[in-house]
Amino acid sequence: MKFINYLEKISGVSIYPVVSLLLFTAVFVLVIIYAMRASRDTIAEMENIPLDDQ
């Protein structure tokens, strides 16, 4: 039995792809907004995190 047959038996399963797409899009947009609004000092500090010896 194929996996798709199990999915067909679940009622309301078609909403899961929509919810996951909306969740991904929301997180992506929030990260883009955070990156655009961050100050140059914050960006420079984050750039140097891998090089810190601490």
Rank of each mutant, 00 (worst) to 15 (best):
Y34K: 15
R37Y: 04
Y16Q: 03
F24D: 01
R37K: 10
S20H: 13
E45R: 15
P50D: 05
T42F: 01
D41S: 12
R40I: 11
A38G: 10
L51D: 12
E47A: 13
I15P: 12
I32P: 00
P17D: 06
K9N: 07
S20R: 12
T25M: 11
E47K: 09
Y6L: 14
F3R: 07
S39L: 01
V18G: 02
G12L: 01
S14D: 07
V18P: 03
M1R: 12
G12Y: 03
L30H: 09
P50Q: 02
R37D: 00
M36P: 02
Y16I: 10
A26W: 08
M1Y: 11
A35T: 11
T42M: 01
I4A: 09
T42Q: 05
T42K: 08
L7K: 03
L23D: 00
F24Q: 04
I33L: 06
E8M: 01
D41H: 05
A26D: 02
A35N: 15
S20L: 15
V19F: 08
T25W: 11
I15E: 15
N48M: 11
Y16R: 06
L23V: 10
Y6N: 09
A35D: 13
F3W: 03
V27P: 04
Q54D: 11
I33A: 00
T25V: 12
A35G: 14
L23Q: 06
M36W: 15
E8D: 06
M46L: 13
D41R: 06
E45L: 13
S14K: 04
Y34M: 15
G12P: 06
V19Y: 03
E45H: 13
F28S: 12
T25L: 14
L51S: 12
L7T: 01
E8C: 02
N5I: 06
I32Y: 05
